[in-house]
Design a protein around this nucleic acid. Structure first.
Lengths: 157, 157
DNA sequence: TATTGTTATACTCTATAACTATA
DNA sequence: TATAGTTATAGAGTATAACAATA
């Protein structure tokens, strides 16, 4: 009977514990929701940054996402194999690849954005709009203590 | 220049993204703070549950923490090698090990609890007491949507 | 025959650093 | 000589399932 053994009341009062637990649980849920699309949250991150900065080189994105170059190769290989991203030759510097979304990639990215929205609804379903705004503000306030840039996520690395 | 490429404003408005990012960042910080003790957050979890339920078997704890039996062996090996936990023979069932904290283990666990408290302070340093309580309440409300028991953390598995 | 704990195997993930092609 | 990208290799981590001791 694991119930005997649970007794986690102490940690229920800890912001750190709850944050870590909720972050992990909800990220796993997001990953499940993306599964029908054949991608995971990191691929989503790649699609997002390529969509925002078409034509950039792999290493530039690797730096921005704090992913080692070899890891970026694997990630781009994944999305390229699915026909979502194209490596184009850069005529100015033929060492570098210019990354672009394919039409299929753009469509899938849009579907992924819808899933992200549905996920957000799912997550905040129990909150009123006011509560959601308040939670967001409080999270930003906590996050301010960690000087991390807005768009980057440690899970990419 | 990664700054050109950042542009994460959209996700800054997402509870899910922030939660996942903050959870991961702050958990990494907690791990760093535990490092001087030679343990990581999972070992802390083991010490905690053993402290709360002295004499339990490995498999009972494994079930409670959703860790596979072989993983529990590795985890207990770690803390036993550091002299923090003892495997005692159970006279009633000599297949099973009864797990107990050593004196050293109890002392180290208490230091780890102090670190956990310091970590919580560090995390919530930017918040007033009222804000902290409010954040906790909102997080609990979100967590209610995921029927996870209070003490368990998916990171143990 | 079932169960506790252990070990062995195989698998995934990832990072480091060597390599190529361009510059 | 330096840089973009790739590949090869080796290491950590982890799960599956076979195994030994006990019930």
């Amino acid at each position: 009977m694991p119930e005997d053994v649970d007794a986690g009341e102490v940690l229920a009062g800890s912001v750190g514990f709850l944050l870590s637990k909720l972050g992990m649980t909800s990220a796993a849920r997001f990953a499940e929701m993306l599964e029908p699309l054949g991608i995971d949250p990191r691929h989503f991150g790649i699609l997002r940054i390529v969509a925002m900065t078409e034509g950039q080189s792999q290493q530039r994105l690797a730096e921005a996402l704090h992913v080692p170059p070899s890891g970026m190769v694997a990630l781009i290989d994944d999305v390229e194999a699915r026909g979502l991203v194209e490596r184009r030759r850069n005529p100015n510097d033929r060492r570098a690849h210019a990354l672009h979304l394919t039409t299929k990639g753009r469509r899938l990215y849009e579907r992924a954005l819808e899933i992200a929205t549905a996920y957000e609804e799912h997550l905040c379903g129990g909150l009123s709009d006011r509560e959601r705004d308040h939670l967001l503000a409080l999270l930003h306030k906590v996050a301010a203590g960690y000087g991390t840039p807005a768009g980057s996520h440690p899970g990419m690395a």
